[in-house]
Write a protein that binds this DNA or RNA. Sequence first.
DNA 1: CTGAAAGCGCTTACAG
DNA 2: CTGAAAGCGCTTACAG
Lengths: 345, 345
Amino acid sequence: MDSPDLPRANTHVRRRVTAAMVADHAGVSTATVSLVANGKTQGRVSATNEAKVLASIKELGYVIDSIGSSLSRGVSTTIIMVAPDISNPFFAKVIAGVRSALGSDYQLLLSVTDSGQLPSAADTRRLLGLRPAGLLVDAPDPSFLEELSATGPLVLLDAPGFSDSVPAVNLDVAQGARDLAAHLAAAGHRNIAYIDGITGTTTFALRRSAFLEAAAKLSMQVPEHAQLATTIDVGSTANAFSKAWPEWKKQGITAVVCATDTHAYGVLQEARVEGIIIPKELAVTGFDDLPYSENSNPSLTSVRLPAELLGRRAAEQLLALINGQELNTAQLTLASELMVRSSTS
Amino acid sequence: MDSPDLPRANTHVRRRVTAAMVADHAGVSTATVSLVANGKTQGRVSATNEAKVLASIKELGYVIDSIGSSLSRGVSTTIIMVAPDISNPFFAKVIAGVRSALGSDYQLLLSVTDSGQLPSAADTRRLLGLRPAGLLVDAPDPSFLEELSATGPLVLLDAPGFSDSVPAVNLDVAQGARDLAAHLAAAGHRNIAYIDGITGTTTFALRRSAFLEAAAKLSMQVPEHAQLATTIDVGSTANAFSKAWPEWKKQGITAVVCATDTHAYGVLQEARVEGIIIPKELAVTGFDDLPYSENSNPSLTSVRLPAELLGRRAAEQLLALINGQELNTAQLTLASELMVRSSTS
DNA sequence: CTGAAAGCGCTTACAG
DNA sequence: CTGAAAGCGCTTACAG
């Protein structure tokens, strides 16, 4: 019943526009179309043909098919970032940094896993099957990396403790912890409490041990019973602090160092309710320097971790790898910065 | 100088293992390898050959190249989800829902944009160049959709106000807002304040108008000057509430409805500081039912939006579309649920 | 400057 | 049950 000879343009099945169709339309070969579509005309395509092809591309709405292109080139123009946890503002900034460094030559795609789980071997393999131009892996666990042997360009983010030869960009949380200790010591504090997270995340362990060590050197006490761990949320920290404070006060605690700003918000909140004067009676500090820390009441002293820069540097390293350059240094460590605000001075 | 005849297995350049290599190794054709690798052996490959190929696949570590496969099949096994904002716990739950519905047949990849920006036309085109099996678009803006005409399987999430023919899964925030109004009316409240977000997000507009309308029907007043808008953060809401409260109190306001739980936390925090008794003196409510709302002090009455279900249903609809099924209903709307807690009773 | 042709790795009618 | 062959859409030496 159909008239197979009629164009099906109006049947709404709109076939994919291919280079061959453009070539036909422009009266050139697909080789020429490819050259023009990829902007490689310099000394290889006449101005006339270039113009013809450009016009046809526009008229037909041609877009290079990246599947065909990838197969032909042997590699895609996609960069895949694998991340275990994306639901926080810190990660959003990391992404922004990655995107800004990547520019428009590469397409960034994220692969996330369920609630903090790292990708399975099978997932990983399938990712590689997409032939990404490069892989960015955030907060990997060592075993994950082993599955990825010989994968092409790969840069780790926030991956302390990996072999020096693996390209990685890390955050120097330890330095921030030391700066924090020095700041508190200079303000005359001698007895400090520490509120930690309860997850055993590497970065938390680093924050704590670096701070404790620096505090000891500066003759500050962080008594065992003034060390606490709670989930990372305002409410439970407020409760825990509320319970602990009478005893802490008795023992002369004058400052609380928190492993995250969120913990610190809990302390600030409870302190206000109980009428504890900050920082006169109690100094409070956090880590991460979340946006709200500038506007909390009082504003919060915090160790800022350069999220955007972390993403940017990682992407830059990856681009270098993709372009076949030798990395000057496989691993970069980014300095953290102590933001001193009203909660301590 | 090289001996081109020697295998290069030990040169660490480990070439990609192809179906042809497996075929050689097993002594069969690539067609057979393909059949076995895809589990399509039923009545088409002898048990002997199947075993041989399986062994070779294992020994060589063969993985189907999805680029080649996609080109051949005409479509990939990738599902791309486009989202403007991923940095919140709500979105993490949506993702979890999507993943659970997708199972292991498809690979979920996320494409995010810079800070709340929607993808550009160019970005979108490139995404399509990857020939995804389907596209999931979260909170799209109408113009974005126009660029995507005739793309294959597509499901929108949280996209109120689109043409009925576009497959979408939405949240019935309006019903939640009405339930909330009924709840407050039943508790005897007559004068209500409303704290909104300042971004013009569609869902916020819906929450507000639905609540105002229902309140009016129930003879509750929400005076103009008792309506406020602040950024979505605890601190600025606390400040704004602190300023507004004396006047509100004078005018007999007994409940504050907040457009998000985060706003509500700000009110709760400030109320505790000022010694306002909740809910006796002031009832407080939120939207979203974030995890902390269960543990806040007091716990927060909130309209729960089913994030996980949103993701799951959207993925299910998409799978149906991919399998060529007709959708019974193009658009689904998921009920919200009022979680009544101590902040109102 | 140009185009015919090979090739990327896979899948799938097709003939046997 | 099996394999040779065509084809997916592109890129890139290669010959002219």
